[in-house]
Amino acid sequence: MSGNGNAAATAEENSPKMRVIRVGTRKSQLARIQTDSVVATLKASYPGLQFEIIAMSTTGDKILDTALSKIGEKSLFTKELEHALEKNEVDLVVHSLKDLPTVLPPGFTIGAICKRENPHDAVVFHPKFVGKTLETLPEKSVVGTSSLRRAAQLQRKFPHLEFRSIRGNLNTRLRKLDEQQEFSAIILATAGLQRMGWHNRVGQILHPEECMYAVGQGALGVEVRAKDQDILDLVGVLHDPETLLRCIAERAFLRHLEGGCSVPVAVHTAMKDGQLYLTGGVWSLDGSDSIQETMQATIHVPAQHEDGPEDDPQLVGITARNIPRGPQLAAQNLGISLANLLLSKGAKNILDVARQLNDAH
């Protein structure tokens, strides 16, 4: 009898209710805020589980004197976190989706994509230029951005401005803007500013005609071990179906173009009346040469937790077992079709030249 009692006690200790789920994140304040929001949602869904947040620095956090596009290494903000995932030191990792490459290392998958916040870019102005827009900034004003995508589009749109690289986390960039006289304004992701509670610093939100956004911008991705079915089931509740389908289309477009950090590629997606609209573009580094096109596809946005595919093969690095396969494939095909259209119009040449120029500098 006593033996059975011990077995029952052991089973209770090993039951999922007692389990601590370890969540990996970057150390920056924004990353911690984003991770806290994901953990809060998981806690609400699984009140019996405990969650421990483990923060670590990544290569991208450490190399702050070089433009991201020049470092010449993929997975700048993800490699150390993936290493911890691989060694079973954490069970899942919360990322900004735009930091996750469209091809993940073997053994990993994006197990959830959370509801997207505003994906557009924002302009934050130096205190002396508050009330201005990019259009009304004085001639030769210097605007800071760490992104080739932003610089290429904005140089084309605002030729009277000069664009220079600015690195560091959000706090560091804002301090550089406010305390030094080098920059009249800087460009940042609206979602990051909003998550930090800095709505009052948003001086201008850039519309798609001015600057399309990065693939996955404004959404959070939760990376897990691809074979860890328990954790895949656990994080599945975080999937937002519309965000998922938009981001599958965007990531398929980028992957098929073979774009990345070192080339200016941008997108804009919208879901309306059962249609998914995808606009994508590529630019030369100075913005003088560009190709942009829009395509659409009829896609039914499923309700969360309709029964999805059981075999769960990944699409552009994403596993969404609780979302039907048909809409996911339709979104992926839309991204591939748009990429093929741009490639047929000469996108590869623009991107190759951009890559060579970026590598040469």
Rank of each mutant, 00 (worst) to 15 (best):
N200Q: 00
H256P: 05
A122Q: 06
D312T: 01
L137V: 11
L343I: 02
D230A: 05
V235H: 02
L100K: 02
P241H: 09
A347I: 03
A331E: 03
T243Y: 00
D307L: 00
G308T: 08
G216H: 00
L329V: 15
H95Y: 03
L188S: 14
Q356N: 15
N200C: 12
S146H: 06
T298Q: 08
G259S: 11
C261E: 03
Q292H: 14
N322L: 06
I318F: 15
G203S: 14
V124N: 04
E135Q: 13
K79W: 12
A249D: 03
Q314P: 11
R167K: 06
K227N: 08
R150G: 04
K132S: 12
L254I: 01
P327Q: 15
M212Q: 03
D230G: 07
E250M: 00
L329Q: 15
V38R: 03
Q180N: 15
G218M: 00
L220M: 13
A330M: 00
L329P: 00
A339D: 07
A151T: 09
G346Q: 00
L64W: 15
T279H: 05
A270V: 12
S141V: 09
G131T: 09
Q181V: 06
S75M: 06
D359V: 03
P159N: 14
V353K: 00
G221Y: 05
L42D: 01
T41E: 11
L64V: 05
R116L: 04
Y277D: 06
L220F: 07
I110T: 05
C211W: 04
R149L: 02
D233R: 09
T269P: 01
D91C: 05
T133H: 07
I71C: 10
A297L: 04
G60L: 00
H207I: 07
L134K: 01
T58F: 03
G287F: 04
L97N: 04
L232V: 14
V103I: 08
R175E: 06
S165R: 08
I166F: 13
R116W: 04
D228G: 12
I248E: 01
S57H: 04
V39E: 07
K70W: 09
T294N: 14
L285H: 08
V94D: 03
P313I: 15
E82R: 08
I323G: 04
H239R: 03
I53F: 13
P264E: 05
K272W: 15
H199S: 14
G72A: 15
G72M: 09
Q332N: 04
S288E: 14
V267A: 06
S147A: 00
C114R: 09
S37A: 14
K62L: 04
R325P: 14
F51W: 11
R321L: 11
D240T: 06
L238P: 07
A152L: 12
L234E: 01
G131L: 08
Y46H: 13
T59L: 07
L245C: 11
L49S: 12
E223V: 05
D228K: 03
L161W: 07
Q356Y: 06
Q194G: 06
Q304A: 15
S288V: 12
Q328S: 15
S147V: 03
H120N: 12
L329W: 04
I291T: 09
P106G: 10
L276M: 15
S290G: 12
E117R: 07
N118R: 12
D289Y: 11
L329S: 13
P138E: 09
V301N: 00
V142H: 10
K345E: 09
D289S: 08
G144I: 03
E73L: 06
I53G: 05
Q50S: 03
R355A: 04
P138N: 11
R175V: 13
F125N: 08
L161F: 07
A226L: 08
R164N: 11
N340E: 00
K132Q: 14
Q296I: 07
G274W: 11
T41C: 10
W198E: 13
K157T: 07
E135W: 11
R116H: 04
F253V: 04
P208V: 06
N200L: 05
S165C: 11
G131C: 07
K272F: 12
L342Y: 13
L137W: 02
D61Q: 00
L245K: 04
F51T: 13
M212R: 03
L245P: 01
V265M: 04
C261W: 04
G326V: 10
P138S: 11
F77V: 01
R167F: 05
G218Q: 01
L254V: 10
S45L: 08
V265R: 01
K98S: 02
H239P: 06
S96K: 01
A214Y: 02
L137A: 06
A214M: 14
L170F: 11
K74A: 09
G346S: 03
R150P: 03
L188M: 09
Q153Y: 13
P101Y: 01
K345D: 05
I248G: 00
D61C: 03
H83N: 13
L137P: 02
E182A: 13
N322M: 10
V38T: 12
P313A: 14
A270E: 14
R201H: 02
G335V: 05
M56W: 08
L220C: 10
G72V: 10
E250D: 05
K98E: 04
P302I: 03
H305S: 06
L244A: 04
L100F: 02
A152V: 13
L177K: 01
R195C: 07
V124D: 01
L104M: 14
L68E: 08
G48P: 05
T136I: 14
N169A: 06
